[in-house]
Write a protein that binds this DNA or RNA. Structure first.
Lengths: 246, 246
DNA sequence: CCGGATCCGTAACGATACTG
DNA sequence: CAGTATCGTTACGGATCCGG
């Protein structure tokens, strides 16, 4: 009956007591993309088990991060959506997303993937200071999933659904999108791929991709290789330690 | 034998596969403050259990986030410290720290606290753009724990240990420090407390505290109150949903 | 005393079946 | 569709033990 807690008077520990349990961050990720029904969450989070999803949602609602809402008719289904307090987690999710990128190896046959994940990664990679003089709206179609990117005055808006007045449209598949967004393939490789098509003002899209996102070379050393060849278990000798022990 | 994994081709999930398990974030927090011996970690993380700490450290070392180091003689003890890759987690830890602050209620008798936690909170609250014309170094003494804050050209350096040339020195206790740093008490209340003493250029310290840190009013509504009085389980009616379901 | 490893009871998780 | 109930398995937490 008693809830497991770190019992520490520390903001980090207090936050982890709320969203630190298994699956919780991923539920927040799902709802950051868009409000979702119970079933949508269950399908997006393969392996969670329905009882655990139910339990997590209750906890999140009680903590004031998530609320239920009824969509207006005719699609009168009830969905879960983030509250303002829940949406405040975006900063953390993006930071964790940026950091986790290095552990994302090549896609294994067993790993699942959804184009929606990429939206978060795009937001995480966005650098406002590089986009101050960029102003465009482009629409992306990945299979039957559609989203748009709107950059205006150094601000990024990205969401699922069709754009109102896109200046360009990109059609590609999930694999190509992921390779681009996760930095697995260079921009040049991507745009020359037969699975990547731009209609409309393609040049502005290229400029966006070029300047806004990290041009990192995506180092993924032994992410999946369980036994690295020369794992020296030796202890590093430290020359001088600036801060003394506590 | 098989490791539990989300199996999702998503940077967030990949990151959580590495540091998402219980206690791991707090171990990183400890090492973010300073390198520590096994025993120090065990004492700082009450409740972890020695087998789990050992397991987590092994995982962290294998993931390349932590390494062992030997301190130079005469204090030739082996410590755990973060690698560069581990230190990259600071951004995430600070974001989570900021977010978790709202869930930090009043200190309960059972909750543990250490002045070291406050260092992270100070870093998290620091706003570089507000500190561009601040330049000072002050030393803080909380019981027998000493640390310093050095602000220079919009950059913050905070670490345990004595400062080389502090312009001011603050002496207080843990409770007052926490109330100040966690926004539980106003600056005015703090500096008039009998447990708060400044020697040296006190005015510059006050200016630092005033301008650099959030002046938030620290709302903690029903953080610990288990049954909020009028918890409406009603579903919110949503007027219009901008993005369509996926 | 330090740095763990081993053992074991309990709580959390994951899969499946079942219900309004 | 939106969950609840059940149950086997895994992870965690506390204690004890052991080599240096």
């Amino acid at each position: 009956m008693k809830k497991r807690s770190y019992q520490q008077y520390c903001p980090l520990a207090a936050g982890l007591d709320v969203i630190g349990e298994r699956w919780t961050f991923l539920i927040v990720r799902e709802l950051l993309i868009s409000p979702k029904r119970y079933k949508d969450l269950l399908e997006g989070l393969v392996g969670i088990g329905t009882n655990l999803l139910s339990k997590r949602l209750k906890t999140l609602v009680k903590a004031g991060l998530v609320e239920q809402a009824v969509l207006p008719p005719p699609a009168a289904s009830t969905v879960y959506q983030l509250t303002d307090r829940g949406r405040d987690l975006e900063e953390t999710v993006l930071a964790l997303n940026r950091w986790g990128l290095q552990f994302l190896g090549e896609k294994q046959p067993m790993t699942l993937s959804r184009p929606e994940w990429s939206l978060i990664a795009v937001k995480a990679a966005f650098r406002p200071e590089k986009a101050e003089d960029i102003n465009l709206c482009c629409e992306w179609q990945i299979d039957d999933f559609i989203f748009y990117i709107h950059v205006h005055a150094g601000h990024l808006k990205i969401a699922s659904g069709k754009a109102t007045t896109p200046i360009a449209q990109v059609t590609t598949n999930g694999e190509t999108l992921e390779a681009l967004v996760f930095g697995k393939r260079s921009l040049k490789e991507t745009i020359t791929s037969p699975h990547f098509k731009i209609t409309g003002s393609g040049l502005s899209v290229l400029r966006l991709l070029q300047t806004v996102f990290h041009e990192k070379s995506a180092t993924f050393p032994e992410t999946r290789g369980k036994a690295s060849p020369k794992r020296s278990a030796k202890k590093k000798r430290v020359p001088t330690l600036s801060s003394r022990r506590v």
